[in-house]
């Protein structure tokens, strides 16, 4: 019956994870039009609405630069955050509960790490695409003041993983998608609004400032701003990177444990 020989052994290395990534990329080919609106146009409108609109009323700029230039690196980071969260919430829950994609993949010779890794890699691809587009627009708008701006790309990947991995774990643990709405409202939106994207965290009351420092977004915003403006970050560079890496590692560990419990039993 077989016209093509089927391999009898499990492929080694990252091959299986790449196959999972490929699956998600094929899905993206079908829905990318919708993502153009949410991942590109909305951030651009935010740049215009706040950077130019509100910026026109900010006399003298912030920290010695025009408000637009202050805002752009923050928005690059908050867009990366939005994309990472959007791709790790409903899609992950849906793959468990509704379309049961993971269960199908688990029936193939894939390890939990392949399924998780492949999907996380897809999320990072999405983060990277939107960051590249955003950076290009910022360059055209003349908001980039240093070649270090290119360093925002790997930085956004790190932020993406630091956020997506724990959110994967969360989405794999909750009984209803109502909790995702809560995560957005109590976690993502406050972070976006208070972690130094729109105004310096130094003007926050002390308690709130503490929360801003705890959020992964602030660390990415501070580095991103340093990179596009060509200045030194307000906090230590290794400190920022270590903090974000810790979120990513702990997140991956949690996500792997949660996925394992849901898929292998």
């Amino acid at each position: 019956m077989d016209t093509v020989e089927t391999p009898r052994r499990r492929p080694a290395g990252v091959g299986p994870a790449l196959a999972v990534l490929e699956y998600h990329l094929i899905g993206y080919r079908r829905v990318w039009r919708g993502s153009v609106l949410s991942s590109f146009l909305l951030p651009l409108l935010t740049v215009v609405g706040f950077g130019l609109g509100v910026g026109a009323y900010v006399d003298g700029g912030v920290a010695g630069v025009p408000y637009l230039d202050y805002l752009v690196p923050g928005l690059i980071a908050s867009t990366a955050l939005q994309v990472a969260v959007a791709e790790s919430t409903w899609p992950v829950l849906g793959n468990f509960e509704w379309v049961r994609v993971y269960a199908g993949q688990a029936a193939a010779p894939l390890r939990v790490a392949d399924i998780l890794g492949g999907h996380l890699a897809y999320v990072l691809v999405r983060v990277l695409i939107s960051s590249v587009v955003f950076l290009a627009v910022a360059a055209v708008a003349g908001s980039l003041h240093s070649p270090w701006a290119l360093a925002t790309l790997p930085l956004m990947l790190l932020l993406g993983l630091a956020v997506a991995a724990p959110v994967f774990a969360f989405a794999a643990s909750i009984p209803s998608d109502n909790y995702l709405a809560l995560l957005i409202r109590l976690g993502v939106i406050p972070m976006t609004l208070f972690a130094g994207v729109f105004f310096p965290v130094e003007s926050l009351p002390v308690v709130l400032r503490g929360f801003a420092y705890l959020s992964p977004l602030w660390h990415a915003v501070d580095l991103s701003r340093a990179a596009t403006l060509g200045t030194a970050p307000t906090w230590s560079l290794p400190g920022h990177l270590l903090y974000l890496t810790a979120w990513a590692l702990v997140g991956c560990g949690l996500a792997h444990a949660r996925f394992r419990r849901r898929l292998v039993f």
Partner: peptide, 9 residues
Amino acid sequence: SIGVGVGAL
């Protein structure tokens, strides 16, 4: 955030 935070600017 916007009203008070950015408002300060």
